Simulated assay, not measured.
Amino acid sequence: MATNGSVSSKNFCDAGPSCADNVSEWDITWITNMEKPLKQIKYAILILNRPITQNPQFMRRLWNQASIRITVDGGTNRWDQFISSQPEAYNKGLKLPDLVTGDFDSITTEICDKYKKKGCKIVHTLDQDHTDFTKALLELIIHCNQIGVEIENVVTFAQNSGRLDQVLGNIQTLFLARDKLLIAPKIKIYLISDDSISWLLSPGEHVILISEEVRKSKRVWCSLVPIGEACERVTSTGLKWNLDHQRLKYGDLVSTSNRFDGSDKVTVNCSHTLLWSMRIPNIK
């Protein structure tokens, strides 16, 4: 656990039976396990404007079985480049984007016209007060309402390398989606970058299921990072370096480069929002 250097909170849930109804469970095995069926999972997939580095079979499985498929601005170029680089057999039966959206400052005219001619819905969002990711979530909900589809998860492919401002902008969108109620509170949003996955842990108690594949990986890592404010108290189990009512804050202590202790789950009890990230092996 990397370091850089008893406050109570009404949001902090001391472990015990009274907290049972407030526990959020996170099971991402439906995303990472290639053998796990997705028929019962209601999710949307978003492709942002970053290189697609994941395993082609991993991408095809998630893409084709999604309830809604969206490419966002230059992410349409990236998706087209990705599928064009695959063998002809790969593209047979591959579904088209349901929606192509963004302010279109990155997508090429050629690619936009190509998918328009294929029958994809094209939505131009000009608002510059929000990122294309944020606007794509708004358009996703509009589209779901129009076609009568409910989703419970959003899987977004967005590189966490390159421009730091865009990385931080993606995290900002996670906060906006939750705090401004851009989407229903029950919908979970995941960010996938290379071979890692991230999401927000809101104040309260969380259980994160850790698959055997992850537990056995030698290069696996995880982190708990406070974003925007200190997290006054954090308690965890299932980590190599657990926290016990500790304070996480930039300039003080943050939990990066942590590991798992071999348990099949991690529990996190936090007084304020944390960004949870972890490596998921074998998706590249």
Rank of each mutant, 00 (worst) to 15 (best):
R69G: 04
E232C: 08
G148F: 10
K135H: 06
D80V: 04
K95I: 07
R279T: 02
P17I: 05
H143Y: 15
V23C: 11
S202K: 04
G148A: 11
S161P: 02
K240H: 10
V72L: 08
W30P: 07
S271G: 10
K118A: 14
C231M: 05
N258D: 01
I151W: 14
I141Y: 14
I111L: 07
I147Q: 13
L248A: 01
Y190C: 02
Q128G: 08
E110W: 08
E150W: 03
H124F: 15
R61V: 06
I208C: 00
T173I: 03
I192M: 01
F104K: 12
T267S: 12
K186I: 03
I283R: 00
T125K: 12
M34F: 12
T156Y: 02
C222H: 00
N33P: 03
T256N: 02
G74C: 07
Y190M: 04
P56H: 06
D14G: 03
G228T: 05
H124L: 15
L224P: 01
S202G: 05
N258F: 00
S202Q: 12
I189F: 04
Q40C: 09
K10E: 11
A15N: 12
E25S: 11
S18I: 13
P56I: 03
Y250I: 07
I141M: 15
I52E: 07
I151Q: 11
V100Y: 07
G5I: 12
I283G: 00
Y250D: 06
I208H: 00
G251L: 05
L182T: 03
K188T: 13
D179R: 06
V225M: 09
L182S: 02
Q146M: 14
L181A: 10
K10W: 07
P185M: 01
K117V: 09
I187Y: 06
T32F: 08
I141D: 13
N91I: 06
I197E: 00
R279N: 05
A177T: 02
K218S: 14
Y90I: 09
G238P: 03
A44K: 08
N145H: 14
A44I: 07
K36S: 11
T273L: 00
H245E: 14
H206T: 01
S257K: 01
I171D: 06
E232L: 14
N49L: 09
A158Q: 14
C222Y: 00
F12V: 02
D244W: 05
G169L: 03
N11Y: 10
V72F: 08
K218C: 09
V220D: 04
I171P: 03
W79M: 10
D127W: 09
V7S: 10
S277H: 00
H143A: 08
Q159D: 13
S263T: 11
T29K: 14
